[in-house]
Amino acid sequence: MSKILFIIQVVLCVSAFAGGKINVVASIPDLGDMAMRIGGDKAKVIVLATGREDLHAVPVRPSFLPILNRADLLLTLGLDAEHSWLPALAAEARNAKIMEGRPGWIEVSEGIHVHDIPEILDRSEGEQHPEGNPHYNIGPQCGTSMANNIYKALLSAAPEHKDFLRANRDQYVRSVDTVITSLKQQSSALKGIPIIGYHEDLVYLCEFYGIKVIGYIEPKAGVSPTAGHLREIESLGREQGVKLIIHNQTQSPRIPEKLGKSLNCPIVEIANTVGAKKEITTWLELQLYNNRVLLEALKKL
């Protein structure tokens, strides 16, 4: 009996420290796509959200727990983007490595120039993100920083694969640069156009294209619009000659459509994560998709 126990203990010890693939879990497909490209066959990547849902309120399914239980790294957007669902889930997963604040909980926002850091933190200002706007994943300019952060996380988990990971990162960053150059060349028509957004999640996208946001359908982030606010935004839109009304796949199109009709301007449904539309399977495709729908909408004017 003691010999069997001895063998079991040795096997357990060996398996606990055996260097296999890095188990990576990503909160949204954007991060999963980058991790797959940089990690290659050294990483096993599982993504929790499909990309179709609002990333602030991903329906928490119990099947996420066994996945998180085995994770070495949990890639998150950070800046409290996933605060309503992911920290509680990670705390339940019986995996000390990836709980919020621990070494395996990776916030990919490091090095991003963060916008909208609130000066006043108060619930009367709506559903605020105290550390700033977390929707940087739709800004093409943020791709390189995101890729670098994911590379650093993978490297910390498997330093023995440094050369492999660095080569993949470099190759990916080159493809990001190529796409950025192409997007900039195609999108000069978007520069300076006034738009109305639904939620304060367009800032990085608008920064890249030079689009001017004159207001939002939500009076404050996360607060449903009132009739009074809609009248105000309609009047502002008319005054400033708004060209587009932009919402994303998770927001009900009812109010944007109504507003668009009254302001006589096109509605654009952008994608705010990879997976939001069937044809968007990578982060680079996400950027190309948003560029295309914005330009197509502009042609309708």
Binding site: C13, A16, A96, K97, M99, G101, R102
Partner: peptide, 17 residues
């Protein structure tokens, strides 16, 4: 082995912010 396993499984919290 037991000590090693327990040490590997219990990872202390590191203050994030």
């Amino acid at each position: 082995c037991i000590v090693l396993l327990l040490t590997a499984l219990i990872i202390p919290i590191q203050a994030a912010k």
